[in-house]
Amino acid sequence: MHANDAERLGVATAAYRRAMLTPFVAFPSSANTAPAPRHAGVDILAPRPAASPVVRFAPQATRDVTVLGPLAAFAVGGVTDLLINGEAGLWVDSGHGLRHEPDWMCPERSLRELAVRLIALGGRHIDEASPCVDVRLADGIRVHAVLPPVSSTGTLISIRLPNATRFSLETLASAGLCGAGSAAEAMVDRLRQAVHDRVNLLITGAAGSGKTTLLAALLAESPPDERIIAIEDVAELQIEHPHVVGLEARQANLEGAGRIAADSLLREALRMRPDRLVLGECRGAEIRELLAALNTGHDGGAGTLHANSLRDVPARIEALGALAGMSVESVARQTVSAIGLVLHLERHRGVRRLAEVGRFSLDDHDRLAVIAA
């Protein structure tokens, strides 16, 4: 190892240990936090009394957001995302689009400290050598942070808050996910039947469109004597089922060792007697292992995929297959054989809906295509 690299690694290690060992004064265990008045000289990291930061969605559903410290006061009601854009401020999404929070003000130095300690609570470090980090905190809260100079607008923190309530398929349908009237009822019956018939499902859509929520609701329809094994980069799935096993990918440590990718976890899952194999999100070379597994008798599986529309799904799968070294023809034939139904979700003005249902086929040139089903 070069002397400069060793020195930088030693500095990063020391900073990480300090973050883990130093008490987080901004995250008091007994005192709660509240938004600070927007005026000069206020440090948003200082603790303040406020209402309890445990958010209640339903009588039996709670979400503990105390780990967010000064941000806990904003993680209330139906808030799903908290986005901090350096000193430009905080934006909150509660299902109706992003809105700016005028009561939040945090200087860059304090914001960087907040990012370092949030990431440390997730068991990782963030510094100039590793300026982009994603971690999972308590209750499935996801935190992603980016430091300057990678960010040209100051420290960036993006927080995704999972819903404390586990929605059933009926609840989602009643909220308008499947449309209205008899058409909605028919779609619910069709989805439930697909699960019972062990059809392999792929749920697609943009970020925040409800892919994970729908996937969890569909898997909850599985018979209770089946074993579900879910592989995720960051654990988010909350499935109302008596036999769920979760595997979470792991990133490399400070020395660059210890990484366990989703494709490795998929291979391990095949040795764990899965009745249903689930990949939380297809985003890389693991698509090869998933297609191989679903083509060798592991039916009833499911996964999600980012895509702008149903017609864009084949191109996305081809791109992921290329990362795994698969030819276009191989991707097409394995996908047609492996995936029985594609469910595409859209989100418009805060409303999530099942916009299109399709199935894969081969076009005249043996390329992957998708048609309405």
Score class of each variant (00 low, 15 high):
1 M>N: 03
8 R>T: 10
11 V>A: 12
17 R>E: 14
27 F>I: 15
35 P>M: 06
38 R>A: 09
39 H>W: 10
42 V>Y: 08
45 L>R: 09
45 L>Q: 03
47 P>D: 11
49 P>K: 13
58 A>R: 12
59 P>C: 14
62 T>F: 09
63 R>E: 05
67 V>M: 09
73 A>S: 13
81 D>F: 06
82 L>H: 03
83 L>N: 02
83 L>I: 10
87 E>Q: 03
88 A>V: 00
94 S>T: 00
94 S>E: 03
95 G>A: 09
98 L>C: 08
102 P>E: 10
105 M>G: 14
118 L>E: 04
118 L>Q: 07
119 I>M: 12
119 I>S: 13
123 G>M: 02
123 G>Q: 02
125 H>P: 05
128 E>F: 08
129 A>P: 00
129 A>W: 04
129 A>L: 03
132 C>D: 06
135 V>G: 01
140 G>C: 01
143 V>L: 08
143 V>Y: 01
143 V>C: 04
148 P>I: 02
151 S>A: 01
155 T>M: 11
155 T>G: 10
158 S>F: 03
162 P>F: 07
163 N>M: 09
170 E>G: 10
173 A>F: 07
174 S>Y: 10
175 A>Y: 14
176 G>D: 05
186 A>Y: 09
186 A>K: 14
195 V>I: 15
200 N>H: 06
202 L>Y: 07
204 T>G: 14
209 S>A: 15
212 T>E: 08
212 T>W: 12
213 T>S: 09
216 A>H: 12
217 A>S: 11
230 A>I: 10
231 I>V: 13
236 E>K: 07
239 I>L: 06
249 A>K: 02
250 R>G: 05
250 R>M: 06
250 R>F: 01
258 G>S: 04
259 R>L: 02
259 R>N: 00
260 I>P: 04
262 A>D: 00
265 L>Y: 03
266 L>K: 11
268 E>N: 14
278 V>E: 00
280 G>V: 06
280 G>M: 01
281 E>R: 04
282 C>L: 03
285 A>W: 00
285 A>L: 04
287 I>V: 12
287 I>K: 02
291 L>V: 02
298 H>M: 07
300 G>W: 03
302 A>H: 06
302 A>Q: 05
302 A>E: 02
312 D>L: 06
312 D>Y: 01
313 V>G: 06
314 P>K: 09
319 A>V: 02
320 L>Y: 03
323 L>T: 05
327 S>R: 13
329 E>L: 10
330 S>G: 07
330 S>E: 09
332 A>D: 04
344 H>W: 00
348 H>I: 13
351 V>N: 02
352 R>W: 07
354 L>D: 05
360 F>E: 01
361 S>Q: 02
370 V>T: 07
370 V>M: 07
372 A>S: 13
